[in-house]
């Protein structure tokens, strides 16, 4: 059920956006700072799930669900699975090259400043029009399977090729192996 949009609706959206954008950023920073691979993987899951919530706030409900199911639920499980299987320890910390410190941080600052200036200076930008309601799965699939059918199918072929490549690589390592019955 959707309540009629009220004045409090907008603030609620804003609060939810700030909270989950915060989660997203915190997760991303944590991902970089953590020393243990599994903590980094878990932070990435936090990032992905908060992104899903942001999609949901924008009315893209199918995308949100797909984000959770595919990225958080399948791909990251594979990541943690590999970390667990290899039982990777703490990553080794190098002291960091001096070039990274002397050049890297100023470079990041410069890029961020550049982006910020461009955004602030830019005129003639106005708020993008979002559709008010929710993009239903029906609308999405109509676009995907009618107007964008060819790119969609070509992408699936691409993925298939990747899978075949993975199978070929896994096979050649152990020679000709047949799975048990």
């Amino acid at each position: 059920m959707r309540l009629a949009p009220t004045a409090s609706d907008g603030t609620m959206y804003l609060i939810l956006f700030i909270v989950f954008a915060g989660f997203c950023l915190a997760g991303a920073v944590n991902l970089l700072l953590q020393r243990h691979p599994i903590n980094s993987a878990l932070s990435l899951i936090v990032v992905m799930t908060s992104l899903a919530v942001l999609y949901l706030l924008l009315g893209a409900e199918f995308l949100a669900a797909a984000q959770v199911i595919v990225y958080a639920g399948a791909i990251m499980v594979l990541f943690t699975f590999v970390v667990m299987l290899l039982n990777a320890g703490r990553e080794e910390r190098t002291l960091g090259s001096r070039a990274a410190k002397t050049l890297g941080f100023p470079a990041v600052v410069v890029i961020l400043a550049l982006v910020a200036t461009v955004i602030v200076k830019a005129t003639g930008l106005h708020g993008a029009m979002l559709s008010d309601g929710i993009t239903s799965t029906v609308d999405l699939s109509r676009v995907l399977f009618r107007e964008l059918l060819l790119p969609f199918e070509v992408t699936s072929v691409l993925v298939l090729v990747a899978i075949l490549g993975a199978v070929a690589l896994a096979r050649s390592a152990g020679g000709e192996r047949t799975a048990g019955k």
Binding site: M1, I38, L42, I45, T49, E61, F62, A64, A65, A66, V68, I69, A72, G73, A74, V77, T80, F81, V83, M84, I134, S136, T137
Partner: peptide, 27 residues
């Protein structure tokens, strides 16, 4: 509790997150 348009996907999504409980407990 909540009539969601993507109810089925929500259930599948939450199920797929549930794997972490088991994976992390073992590790």
């Amino acid at each position: 509790i909540s009539n969601v348009n993507i109810g089925l996907l929500v259930i599948l999504g939450i199920t797929s997150i549930g794997v972490y409980g088991i994976a992390l407990s073992g590790w």
